[in-house]
Nucleic acid binder design. Structure first.
Lengths: 344, 344
DNA sequence: TTGTAAGCGTTATCAT
DNA sequence: ATGATAACGCTTACAA
């Protein structure tokens, strides 16, 4: 081993490469590579010297070049839509944290509309992501493209009917059943439903589950209005329900928290109804804001941390073992007995 | 030009490369590259044929390999902390959208604590990001490292004193002055302040600006409590103010909306005070949730869209023109006269 | 343990 | 307009 060269290599403003480090440390370029690869066979002596020079030069291995040869980018694509849904920021942060913790980086696609999904997928392919977690509305065809390209995919809260796909989801049906049972038990009879967008599978499943359960209780005269998952639309939908029923409903079941909160405000401020004495309102998701005292929403809390942890773990497994079977994990939500509804 | 080859190349389960496409289209690999480069000199004939074969093979150019040679990753690092701050999800989505719109991808780092910034920066270097937008708390030293490495950086709502750096920020001082002036004009005299974390520059600037303005109005007996930017801490801090003043303050100025909302709830529900009749409470940021009817917060609305647009535009300029001068753009916030405070 | 050399999949340069 | 060929910065046999 030669002594360390005294002169700084001329890099003409370019970033330092492993060759620059090698030259200055008087070792071969491969030794530099090995110094940054845990478990590589390299003497402690050389490793130290390389690391020292690297620090001096501010050298960090180029992950782009690395993934070209290893065929692994350590990039996980994260697709998320519906910025309006209160729980999404929480989901996004939780997933992002878990992905970082498992040694990968997050390539984020925050989608405004479904129309953008195609373009996002194209970029996913181009950037050679190792896998993708999606909380956006993929069509069965789009899910199929992941399979064709053999890019592992985990859906978050999107269970596609008739489509074998790996997913984590809160048990929407179970949650709605529990809400309905408790509302009925408390004596509510005139029900109103506020659903989300018609093409949103989650909303559809939640609302159909609620409706089915109400029918089982012999209640089949249920008013239904459609919202857009937003606070404002929840208030408007509440107004529609009041018109349809020619008076306030006993209880309103909303497809998410944002609309439920909108409904609570509309009931209180526009219709001067007291919640929950005159009307019970329940939501779904258990977003942090739903716990604020002024709303204290009765809702089903999605176990976001556990779900995010599972999603990332399932994805990583499939990256390491490409031919695993699709698997769906359903998580029971926690019923949060807030002050926005009377439960029996 | 030869006819299209009939046999599919054997790719042994690997992704299609430009060579595979070239072989099948009976053209050179360079022609494939050109077909995907807008403005390259290639005949429409060949371009069509290449694109056709590419579609058949599901070929997309490998962005990783591309950036290795072009020395441009089209990757923008996005660092964001403080998931608790209500406005951050909005900022994140807005920045993400703008970055996508300008043809780059987002490498996301959602940080829980400042301790993670170092590790995130290391990954930024490794992935050769073209530039970074940060809404996390960087030290002057960390900002310096961006300069050393010549990686363009734009700070969002973080103006570092004595540190030339490109940034967009809402005019915190101006916003607080306007709030104070209007509160004083309405006759409030006993003031309480709820600040954020001591080491948070934004909070410090907002609170010091408010304090200075109060002094100019001859009010220098101001109670101050510290929160942690969260809803819960806002409520607790409100309690501390009541104790310190041996009674409720006339007006409470909070460093952000989440704490203001916490204070409103504490005032109403724990102290049975009517807001704004007995106590006025103002926040800062103008997050969507602050507009909800039950709070209807009086606050300064940060022009998120315009700020995000400016941040991305300034970053892109600096990526294209590396030696531009640092520049800070200050945006006046919009005073939202909600129902949580009496203004004069 | 260390060094040499061959890729990885592009774009860029230079002939033709 | 098209086709060879040389980078880009790394990892990984293989040789020493």
């Amino acid at each position: 081993m030669q002594p360390v060269a005294e002169t700084l290599p001329d890099m003409g403003n370019r970033r330092a490469t492993s060759y620059d480090v090698a030259r200055m440390a008087n070792v071969s370029q491969s030794s530099v590579s090995r110094a940054f690869t845990s478990g590589a066979s390299i003497s402690e002596d050389v490793r130290q010297r390389v690391l020292e020079v690297a620090a001096q030069l501010g050298y960090q291995p180029n992950a782009i070049a690395r993934s070209l040869i290893t065929r692994r980018s350590d990039l996980i694509g994260l697709m998320i839509g519906q910025a309006t849904n209160l729980i999404y920021p929480e989901v996004l942060f939780e997933l992002s944290r878990r992905i970082s913790a498992s040694g990968s980086r997050v390539l984020l696609f925050a989608l405004e509309s479904e129309a953008e999904i195609g373009a996002a997928m194209e970029q996913l392919w181009r950037y050679q992501v190792d896998g993708v977690i999606s909380a956006a509305r993929l069509s069965a065809e789009q899910v199929g493209e992941f399979a064709t390209r053999r890019v592992p995919l985990v859906l978050y809260n999107r269970v596609l009917p008739d489509c074998a796909v790996t997913a984590v989801s809160v048990d929407h049906a179970d949650g709605e059943r529990r809400l309905v049972d408790r509302l009925v038990k408390a004596g509510h009879r005139r029900f109103g439903l506020i659903s989300g967008p018609a093409d949103n599978a989650v909303s559809v499943e939640r609302m159909e589950s609620a409706l089915a359960r109400l029918r089982q209780h012999g209640l089949d005269q249920v008013a239904a209005a459609r919202g857009a998952y937003t606070y404002e639309s929840g208030g408007e939908a509440f107004g529609q329900l009041v018109e349809m029923l020619a008076g306030p409903p006993d209880a309103v079941i909303c497809a998410n928290d944002a609309m439920a909160i909108g409904a609570v405000d509309a009931a209180r401020h526009h219709y001067k109804l007291s919640v929950p004495q005159q009307v019970s309102i329940v939501g779904f998701d258990g977003a942090g804001t739903a716990r604020w005292l002024s709303y204290d929403l009765t809702t089903i809390r999605q176990p976001v941390r556990r779900m995010a942890e599972a999603a990332v773990q399932m994805l990583m497994e499939r990256i390491d073992t490409p031919d695993m079977e699709p698997e769906t994990r359903l998580y029971a939500g926690e019923l949060i007995q807030g002050g926005s509804a009377r439960l029996g």
